[in-house]
Measured scan of single mutants.
Amino acid sequence: FHVTIHVGDITFHIHGVSEEEVKKLEELVRRGADWREIKKTIEEIEK
C-alpha cells in the first residue's frame, strides 16, 4: 500500500506498507497520536 498521513502541517508519505501496518497507523491517527509517535512508527515500518 501507499499511505499518506497528514498531521497538522506535516505530511508523511510511506510506500510498501502492509495491510497490518496500515491498520496500526490508522489506529494511531484515530487516537490522536502526535506526529513524533507517528514518525517513530513509520521509521519502524520502513526498516
Results as ranks from 00 to 15, higher is better:
2 H>M: 09
20 E>W: 11
16 G>V: 15
35 W>H: 05
2 H>Q: 12
4 T>W: 10
14 I>W: 06
5 I>L: 12
21 E>R: 04
17 V>P: 04
30 R>Y: 08
44 E>Y: 05
18 S>L: 06
11 T>D: 05
43 E>Q: 08
16 G>P: 04
2 H>G: 07
40 K>P: 01
31 R>E: 10
47 K>Y: 09
30 R>K: 13
22 V>R: 13
37 E>G: 00
39 K>A: 11
32 G>C: 08
19 E>M: 12
10 I>R: 13
47 K>P: 04
41 T>D: 01
45 I>P: 01
35 W>Y: 06
26 E>M: 14
47 K>L: 13
22 V>C: 06
4 T>L: 08
36 R>N: 15
41 T>Q: 12
37 E>L: 05
43 E>C: 06
43 E>G: 04
47 K>D: 06
42 I>N: 00
36 R>M: 14
4 T>A: 07
32 G>F: 03
25 L>V: 05
24 K>Y: 11
44 E>S: 05
37 E>M: 03
28 L>Y: 03
32 G>Q: 05
4 T>P: 02
26 E>P: 00
17 V>N: 02
14 I>H: 01
3 V>D: 01
26 E>G: 04
42 I>A: 02
26 E>Y: 15
38 I>D: 00
12 F>W: 12
1 F>V: 08
28 L>S: 02
42 I>F: 04
34 D>C: 10
30 R>D: 13
16 G>K: 04
17 V>Y: 12
13 H>R: 08
40 K>Q: 13
24 K>H: 10
8 G>H: 05
30 R>F: 11
20 E>V: 08
9 D>H: 12
44 E>F: 04
12 F>M: 08
44 E>T: 04
14 I>K: 01
41 T>Y: 15
47 K>M: 13
35 W>D: 04
45 I>V: 03
9 D>K: 10
24 K>F: 10
37 E>K: 03
3 V>N: 03
9 D>S: 10
11 T>E: 07
31 R>V: 09
23 K>H: 10
4 T>H: 08
40 K>W: 08
42 I>K: 01
30 R>N: 14
17 V>C: 07
23 K>G: 07
21 E>D: 15
46 E>N: 13
25 L>M: 03
25 L>E: 00
41 T>C: 13
13 H>S: 09
33 A>H: 03
8 G>Y: 06
12 F>R: 02
39 K>S: 11
31 R>T: 13
36 R>E: 15
19 E>R: 10
6 H>R: 13
29 V>Y: 05
18 S>R: 09
42 I>H: 00
46 E>I: 15
32 G>L: 03
3 V>C: 13
17 V>M: 10
14 I>L: 12
23 K>S: 09
44 E>L: 06
10 I>P: 00
22 V>P: 00
23 K>W: 10
38 I>Q: 00
13 H>G: 02
